[in-house]
């Protein structure tokens, strides 16, 4: 989905701020949120990273931009816990008020009223799968990415849509996030690292820049069977 999370190439963002001697966590609550992710998996509430990533993409966009990394995680985790019926939004609100919070504050989570099916989501198997077909592309092939925007989860960023690049690395078939995130099965697909020139992506500029992305086979089509010269 073309959400606020899809940041590649978006204009208007300023200088990168580097914090000196940054700790792993800035506050205990950040570590608590980190631990909740493992707790949710242990409880069987979610078992795949695609569903988890999509839950974060679905949070309030203003919260996404302002609540920080663990604030985004909190929103995603709350989405999944509420959708699974483990907690209710009201119970979190009530506890928060008791602990000195205000109900006027922006809440990141936006749980779906009709959640995606959980489906068959075996945990802990990793993402690589064996499939009974050959990959369509090989190293050096020129490929074009899909032009279509998707309403659900996808790992083709908007900035790389409708662009021509060259396959530089090939990988095994991996669980397809666009399907797996929505409880529609693993549907494993071959994965390729595709390299684009900066000018192909951005229209002009520095010819000495290459950007590579890891893209699933359904995102790609052949460009006249051509090879990279």
């Amino acid at each position: 989905m073309d959400g606020i999370h899809d940041l590649g190439g978006k204009p208007g963002h300023g200088e990168v701020v580097v914090e000196k001697d940054e700790p792993a966590f800035h506050s205990r609550w950040e570590a608590a949120v980190f631990a909740m992710e493992a707790a949710g998996i242990a409880a069987g509430v979610w078992t795949n990273v695609d569903r988890f990533r999509h839950a974060i993409e679905r949070i309030d966009p203003i919260a996404y931009a302002t609540h920080g990394y663990y604030g985004r995680w909190l929103g995603g985790i709350e989405n999944l816990l509420v959708e699974a019926g483990v907690v209710t939004r009201e119970s979190i609100d009530a506890r928060m008020e008791k602990m000195g919070g205000s109900l006027q504050d922006l809440v990141a989570s936006r749980p779906n009223l009709v959640p995606d099916p959980v489906g068959d989501e075996p945990a802990g198997r990793g993402s690589s799968r064996v499939v009974n077909r050959k990959p369509k592309f090989a190293t050096g092939d020129l490929v074009m990415t899909s032009r279509k925007a998707k309403s659900g989860h996808t790992r083709l960023p908007a900035y790389a849509r409708g662009k021509t690049g060259a396959v530089v690395l090939t990988h095994d078939a991996w669980v397809y996030p666009d399907s797996n995130a929505h409880g529609q099965g693993e549907d494993p697909q071959y994965l390729y690292t595709v390299q684009f020139t900066g000018s192909e992506l951005w229209g002009a500029g520095d010819e000495n820049i290459k950007v590579s992305l890891d893209l699933f086979e359904p995102y790609l089509s052949a460009v006249d069977g051509r090879k990279l010269s």
Binding site: W29, A39, Y70, V87, R95, V107
Partner: peptide, 25 residues
Amino acid sequence: TDHDREPQAIRAEALESLLIEKGLL
């Protein structure tokens, strides 16, 4: 610190306490 009192910090602590009561954390 101020960071601990951000709204998302308080909400995280609220959810943490609920999950601890449920035995999930």
